[in-house]
Design a protein around this nucleic acid. Structure first.
Lengths: 343, 343
DNA sequence: TAGGATGATGGAACCGGTTACATGAAACCG
DNA sequence: CGGTTTCATGTAACCGGTTCCATCATCCTA
């Protein structure tokens, strides 16, 4: 048999005060006599009272929780960002409620979250909202902050973004400095159901930086396909099969870069002697494999997003806060100067 | 200016019924006239009403959310399990509130979660509770289900576990079948702040299976240290440095197996020609690297845990449900027969 | 010493749902 | 046709906090 839940009225009775005073004492209100506060706290301890969150939420008119909409929770980037969010929220009064999105239908369903009163704020990770969703979010009663969403549709809303163009430029500069001139790109198909744009931005960053050095990429050295290791491997295999081969490949993600490395092995090419490979993201496996890459500050992006959101909940800011996190080149063992006589 | 929140009373007025009827209609109660229900639903749509979760929770006396205590969210195993949990909860009425634990203090703080009324059920992942915590959880007013916790202290509580002993035996059998007789083990130090036991269980599984075949492991071929890739690498380097070397190494986790492979390379040994390596977990990187390993059904363990928990919330079962998930051998490219003349 | 400022406290409304109980109408029965 | 079911609905209490407003005791000041 469960003892009946102890409520603030029990505490008040025990302490010999009214519920109003008990509530004030518990919430550290100013106008409470120090002695009275003591008595209330003592009663609280004796009765092992802990206030009902549901009741607090209702009477405060706040949910005391923030919703995180995360696409593909299992991608290492997502987990790391989430950890950053947790680091901030754990010291706040807010609960962290997560909504994993792996299908397009679910995305739209979830973005209506903002309309309902299920959270005091929403954090959307790596998920470009659909057209209608943008409208819904614009007029949302609760603040919404995006992390790693690059859609122009949200340009008026607060967000935390890495600079994919600059990051790709970093990779391009690295390859150029090593002496490469025959450089290929492997990335995501322009059309994808979620509207992810980071691959495209990285491609632009690469192309622009190369163009600045007078290097251009022939169309046959641009391989676009579904995001995935094996898809990237197959694309790379085509490029590497013929006689006219690039000396370096920039992949739009580490996952794809790992596919490129597999393709190189299948074609009998050594990395980095015969082919340099550089990726993007710095996922855990990149370290294992010794993959050169561009690092995003994932944990930090989660932290920053959560901080911006808490700020917005406190007081909506105008104009929308935008935090830009700089990318960082990580040189490991898959990039080297091209062999002589080529490039 | 935000319009005042629309409540069920507004809906009731609009539909020309009482709030009780409106509530019943919205919750699919039996005793409501079909026509009346129509009117209520129409009013709901017209006013864009969505019920306040806080109010529902309070009046239902349920939090409609379940708490997940997860240790080391960023480990790929954790994220994959969480995805399984989400798959179940997303179709339920429960919110998924996560609590990441990466420090010992935080663990104890969080296990008191069960005492407060912040969730209708608790899922604890890969985190052996401390002694006091066990007591707290035993008498918890809400059900608690463990996933991947092997502490004997929780033997009376519902849980989902993989069989680490059987999994390790699988790996051992594989190495024996290939012809290996000189087999080493690399795992976690017996003493660790969280009390994780899986490494120890895997060691037992290995030792027992080998013993059955008349093979024993000399003490110098058992390397225990802090969990991590680099720590494992250093331990392996010591073993592989001398003339008396094992022909195969079983690592208690893929992370550590990857360290072993790095050590082999540093010692000029080829894998699998000179040294077979097998890990445990089948993390994402294992596939990249072609690591032979033992797979746990991570997603499934999350699913199962959530299902058991929902069942317990519905109706506490006696005795506690225990779900055992069988491990599975995954043979890739890091295991092969030992070279002739050795082993 | 009257009058106002200040501090501490209590009573009761309120947040927005759910539901026990009461009520009334219609259907059914012998 | 009176009485009992059955169905549909309304009234109001309730969940457990927070907080507005009123009250009252002190203390300060002119």
């Amino acid at each position: 048999m469960q003892a009946k839940n102890v409520t603030i009225r029990d505490v008040a009775r025990r302490a010999g005060v009214s519920v109003a005073t008990a509530s004030r004492a518990l919430n550290g209100h100013q106008l409470v006599n120090a002695l009275t506060r003591e008595r209330v706290l003592a009663a609280t301890k004796e009765l092992a009272f802990s206030p009902s969150p549901a009741a607090r939420r209702l009477s405060l008119g706040r949910t005391l929780s923030i919703g995180v909409v995360v696409s593909f929770l299992t991608r290492p980037q997502a987990a790391e960002r989430l950890r950053g969010v947790d680091a901030i929220l754990t010291d706040s009064e807010f609960d962290l409620v997560i909504h994993n999105v792996e299908t397009v239908q679910k995305r739209d369903q979830l973005l209506t979250l903002a309309r309902s009163r299920r959270a005091d704020g929403l954090l959307v990770m790596s998920l470009p909202p659909s057209g209608e969703a943008v409208d819904a979010l614009q007029g949302s009663p609760i603040p919404v902050v995006f992390i790693d969403v690059h859609s122009p549709a949200i340009r008026t809303m607060p967000r935390v973004v890495g600079d994919d163009v600059a990051g790709a430029a970093l990779a391009a500069r690295h390859l150029l400095d090593l002496g490469h001139r025959s450089i290929a790109f492997i990335g995501d198909a322009a059309e994808n159901p979620f509207g992810f744009t980071s691959s495209r931005d990285r491609q632009h960053g690469l192309v622009d930086e190369l163009a600045g050095a007078g290097v251009s990429i022939p169309p046959e050295w641009v391989g676009l396909g579904a995001h995935g290791r094996y898809e990237a491997r197959d694309l790379a295999r085509q490029m590497l099969g013929g006689a006219h081969r690039p000396t370096a490949i920039f992949a739009a993600s580490d996952t794809q870069a790992l596919g490129v490395i597999a393709a190189a092995h299948m074609c009998g090419l050594r990395v980095p002697e015969d082919l340099s490979v550089i990726g993007y993201d710095d996922i855990e496996a990149a370290d294992y494999v010794g993959l050169s890459t561009v690092r995003q500050h994932l944990f930090e992006s989660g932290r920053a997003g959560a901080e911006v959101l808490l700020g917005e909940i406190e007081r909506r800011s105008e104009p929308a806060a935008v935090v830009r996190l700089g990318p960082e080149l990580v040189v490991r063992a898959t990039t080297a100067p091209p062999k002589e006589g080529r490039g």
